Every structure is written in structure tokens, then in C-alpha cells.
Simulated assay, not measured.
Amino acid sequence: MSVEVGGFFGFILLVLDVWAIISIVQSGASTGAKVFWVVLVLLLPLLGLVIWFLMGPKAL
């Protein structure tokens, strides 16, 4: 059962990371800021997602 739960949460994390990267790329932030956020989310999937959600550039 723990493999099923871990797989489910891993899939949810993957979907959220893809959503975050798409949102970052489509944002009006500078290219450098976009690169920074995308790399952060790719290298630290859970922590990067949380940091981006709390501190990343907000859409207007």
C-alpha cells in the first residue's frame, strides 16, 4: 500500500511541478528570473515548488 500512496503523491508532485514551470515560463518576469525559478523547481521539486509558490513572481 505504501508504494501506491508514494506513487500517487509522486505523480501529484510531478503535475504540480509541470504546472509551476509552465506558469514560470509564461510569466512576465525577466529571463534571468525565469531561469532561476525553473532550475530551482527542477533541482528541488518539492522545496522549489513551495518556495516558488510563496515567493515567486505573481501574475497580474
Rank of each mutant, 00 (worst) to 15 (best):
V50L: 09
G48R: 01
K58F: 09
A20D: 04
P57I: 01
G56M: 06
K34Y: 04
A59V: 11
W37E: 05
L13C: 06
I22N: 12
M55C: 04
L49V: 05
I12H: 14
L49Q: 06
L16T: 05
V18P: 10
I12G: 12
Q26H: 00
S27N: 00
L54E: 05
V5R: 02
V3F: 15
A59N: 15
I12C: 00
L16I: 08
I22A: 08
G32S: 11
Q26N: 06
L14T: 09
P45S: 00
G32Q: 14
G6M: 15
I22G: 11
E4P: 10
V18D: 07
A29N: 04
Q26D: 10
T31C: 13
L44V: 15
V41L: 02
F11T: 15
G56R: 13
G28M: 14
L54D: 00
L46M: 12
V3P: 02
M55I: 07
W19H: 04
P57D: 09
A29L: 12
P57H: 10
E4W: 01
V3N: 00
V5A: 09
L46K: 09
M55G: 08
G56W: 11
L42Y: 03
V50M: 11
F11R: 15
A20W: 07
L16Q: 04
Q26P: 03
G28K: 07
P45Q: 13
K34G: 13
W37D: 07
Q26Y: 08
A29Q: 01
L49C: 08
L47E: 05
I21Y: 01
M1Y: 07
L54R: 03
V18G: 14
G10F: 02
V39F: 07
L42N: 07
F9T: 06
M55F: 02
S27L: 08
P45Y: 12
V25S: 05
G6V: 06
L49N: 13
L60S: 12
M1V: 01
K58T: 04
G48E: 06
S2R: 04
V5D: 02
L42P: 14
A29F: 12
L13E: 08
V18W: 07
G56K: 01
S23W: 08
L13P: 01
A29H: 08
K58P: 03
P45K: 07
A33N: 00
